[in-house]
Computed example of a mutant assay.
Amino acid sequence: MRAFFVYGTLSEGITLRDEERGKFMKEPIISIRHVYFRYPEQQSDALHDISLDVAQGEWLAIVGHNGSGKSTLAKMLNGLHYPREGEVMISGFPLKEEYVWEIRRRLGMVFQNPDNQFVGTTVQDDVAFGLENNGVPHDIMVRRVEESLQRVGMLDFLNQEPHHLSGGQKQRVAIAGVIALQPDIILLDEATSMLDPLGREEVLSTVRELKEEQKLTVISITHDLEEAARADRIIVLNQGSVYHEGTPDDIFQMNKELIQLGLDVPFPIKLGEALRRQGFDIQGGHLTEEELVRELWTSNFKK
């Protein structure tokens, strides 16, 4: 079952405890203050004095090597972990047991392996499952299923069995299941790591379009800096703490530091630097292959 499902009955446009939400609601949409977390079997903190904000409508990438704390932070944002110390506010609610289902209704999570997310025998059944779980009326549910599949370009696969889809198509169906629930935030937890380059491009382009159309907030938890280059802002985690944050341009200027942290800079940046060392007259800061090709074309490949 997807972790963002909520048990209970909701009618269209009605939310639980909206009067209580008003007591807590304040910008930014996510606020984390001095958070510590430690697994019972470990001697050191998995998260150590983490403080960060996520603005409504931004795309934030959280990157780090294995063991940096990014997966622990993703689980905390979905209410699977609670801080040992500190405070987490998500979409107007404090991360506490009594509000965890409200948080999960407002924060939709797309996981690494799409096959682990499917529960329906057809694409439409799978997208409808979360809506049924929320008690959404049938006519509204049908409309939302079709609208969400249309938005991710999968409406033609309505009656297809999920296991017949490609990896990128499966992940787009998983995203449709999230957006059908109309969350405030989409959390991608290594959601493209098992996809080939084409599938990765399909998913990231879909997320970007949805973000712009619906003013969604997107959080991408990843070790892939080419994916992180799509974000508005990047936070680098190291040993459970915030190591650095800034725009993609800012972060990728830390070339050697990123490599020392166990991360790899995007291929277009490495290629651009190699070409400059060979004397080609091109500017730096190209985060995508398209940007680098455009620069090479306009510079006429001059040395």
Score class of each variant (00 low, 15 high):
residue 77 L to R: 00
residue 179 I to L: 07
residue 176 A to Q: 06
residue 234 I to F: 07
residue 114 P to A: 06
residue 83 P to V: 14
residue 243 Y to R: 04
residue 150 Q to R: 09
residue 91 S to T: 13
residue 214 Q to I: 02
residue 236 V to D: 04
residue 149 L to V: 04
residue 61 A to C: 09
residue 267 F to M: 07
residue 47 L to V: 09
residue 248 P to W: 04
residue 20 E to T: 01
residue 3 A to L: 08
residue 26 K to C: 11
residue 29 I to L: 06
residue 158 L to I: 11
residue 274 A to R: 00
residue 28 P to D: 05
residue 294 R to N: 15
residue 170 K to S: 05
residue 31 S to L: 04
residue 99 Y to F: 15
residue 175 I to R: 00
residue 18 D to E: 12
residue 159 N to A: 06
residue 30 I to H: 01
residue 285 G to R: 00
residue 286 H to P: 07
residue 243 Y to G: 00
residue 283 Q to H: 08
residue 18 D to M: 00
residue 273 E to Y: 09
residue 247 T to G: 06
residue 182 Q to H: 08
residue 148 S to L: 03
residue 18 D to C: 00
residue 3 A to G: 14
residue 116 N to Y: 10
residue 49 D to T: 04
residue 87 E to M: 13
residue 275 L to W: 02
residue 287 L to F: 03
residue 270 K to G: 13
residue 209 E to A: 12
residue 238 N to E: 14
residue 227 E to T: 13
residue 247 T to F: 04
residue 82 Y to V: 13
residue 224 D to G: 08
residue 180 A to H: 01
residue 300 N to H: 13
residue 3 A to V: 12
residue 93 F to P: 13
residue 131 L to D: 14
residue 97 E to R: 12
residue 140 I to T: 12
residue 194 M to F: 07
residue 44 S to K: 07
residue 287 L to T: 05
residue 199 G to M: 10
residue 19 E to N: 02
residue 301 F to Y: 12
residue 91 S to W: 07
residue 282 I to M: 08
residue 42 Q to N: 12
residue 22 G to A: 13
residue 283 Q to L: 10
residue 45 D to R: 10
residue 250 D to K: 00
residue 179 I to P: 09
residue 88 V to D: 05
residue 113 N to C: 02
residue 112 Q to K: 04
residue 58 E to W: 02
residue 2 R to M: 10
residue 177 G to A: 07
residue 202 E to V: 01
residue 37 F to M: 11
residue 148 S to A: 14
residue 44 S to H: 09
residue 86 G to F: 14
residue 291 E to G: 02
residue 154 M to Y: 03
residue 131 L to H: 12
residue 228 A to L: 11
residue 196 D to A: 05
residue 141 M to N: 03
residue 252 F to S: 01
residue 173 V to P: 08
residue 216 L to T: 03
residue 1 M to P: 11
residue 114 P to S: 11
residue 129 F to Y: 15
residue 35 V to G: 06
residue 129 F to M: 15
residue 246 G to I: 07
residue 124 Q to G: 00
residue 10 L to Y: 09
residue 299 S to E: 13
residue 82 Y to I: 13
residue 137 P to R: 00
residue 79 G to K: 00
residue 140 I to R: 02
residue 71 S to Q: 03
residue 17 R to Q: 01
residue 169 Q to E: 15
residue 169 Q to H: 01
residue 192 T to A: 11
residue 157 F to H: 09
residue 188 L to G: 09
residue 242 V to Y: 07
residue 215 K to P: 03
residue 127 V to T: 03
residue 236 V to N: 01
residue 300 N to Y: 09
residue 182 Q to M: 03
residue 134 N to D: 09
residue 163 H to E: 10
residue 240 G to T: 05
residue 175 I to E: 04
residue 87 E to H: 15
residue 161 E to C: 06
residue 185 I to F: 10
residue 175 I to C: 02
residue 116 N to Q: 11
residue 80 L to E: 09
residue 96 K to C: 12
residue 254 M to H: 10
residue 300 N to A: 12
residue 62 I to C: 10
residue 260 Q to L: 11
residue 194 M to C: 04
residue 256 K to H: 12
residue 284 G to I: 02
residue 301 F to H: 00
